[in-house]
């Protein structure tokens, strides 16, 4: 078998991943090129500190922590990267089964001597590799950008923050793939996945901004709550959160495999 499905998936999607990675890298580079100097950063801090704490948290800044170039950079980059790369994640997830099932290609593939499980898993694995490529290219823009600014940025921490986003992005891919198994139709899958990501995003944002009432509890249901870049910059990768996301992801993959294994294809 020689990982034919894996290699085929890499071949089909590497250009898209490269384009996304380069695009994100350029966006990071652009953001860095407008990054303020130390004086401006202090002015920004004063401005932000004048805001209500809830609003400050909305920008990904922790009120209780020191306002550092790293935390400010993380707030600039990672609150935006979540929504932009969510588009990549959802599209990638739909390509695991839904796209080809709707196009009628899956019937041809399933008539070959390859199991459904193998098709699903090798494709998820290929997207795991490609997603890492996207994030690495995205980080490379940040790395190059750090050479352009006066402020000293802790690149190791920024790398950790980038890496910390990997489980969340994979979560978007896997959850969309699961939706693909359940819903079958491409546009329906894309629509529901987009709603899922947006709801998760708002639960996370509002939950971190509002410290009272039901919102903090609801925030626990958003997978993005386990992926706060500002937390990573301040405290490093939270391995407990990563493991939790991984466990949920494995559960989703198993659920998708059971559904994929049992149902009719291409109807």
């Amino acid at each position: 078998m020689a990982w034919v499905i894996f290699r085929q998936a890499l071949r089909h999607h590497w250009r898209t991943a490269l384009a996304w990675g380069v695009g994100m890298g350029l966006l990071n580079l652009l953001t860095m090129s407008f990054f303020p100097n130390l004086d401006a950063l202090r002015q920004f801090e004063q401005l932000f500190r004048a805001l209500p704490p809830a609003l400050m948290q909305t920008f990904g800044l922790n009120v209780n922590e020191q306002f550092t170039p790293d935390s400010f950079l993380a707030s600039l980059l990672f609150t935006r990267i979540v929504l932009i790369l969510a588009v990549y994640g959802v599209l990638a997830g739909a390509s695991i089964t839904a796209n080809e099932e709707e196009a009628g290609i899956m019937s041809v593939l399933l008539a070959q001597p390859v199991s459904r499980t193998r098709i699903f898993l090798e494709r998820v694995l290929a997207h795991a590799v490609l997603t890492a490529l996207v994030l690495l290219l995205s980080f490379s823009g940040l790395m190059i950008g750090s050479l352009l600014i006066e402020l000293e940025v802790n690149l190791a921490r920024q790398f950790e923050a980038t890496l910390g986003f990997y489980p969340a992005l994979m979560m978007m891919i896997v959850s969309t793939a699961l939706l693909g198994v359940v819903l079958r139709r491409r546009w329906l899958v894309l629509g529901v996945a987009a709603v899922f990501v947006l709801v998760s995003y708002f639960l996370d944002t509002l939950g971190s901004a509002i410290s009272e009432g039901i919102m903090p509890t609801l925030r626990q249901f958003s997978f993005l709550a386990y992926n706060a870049a500002s937390d990573v910059v301040a405290r490093g990768i939270q391995w407990g959160d990563v493991l939790l996301l991984l466990a949920v992801m494995v559960g989703m993959v198993l659920l998708a495999l059971v559904g994929w294994q049992q149902r009719d294809v291409g109807l």
Binding site: S107, L110, A111, D264
Partner: peptide
């Protein structure tokens, strides 16, 4: 044919 090829059950 699709049943024979295990595309549908």
């Amino acid at each position: 044919i699709h049943i024979l090829l295990d595309i549908i059950r």
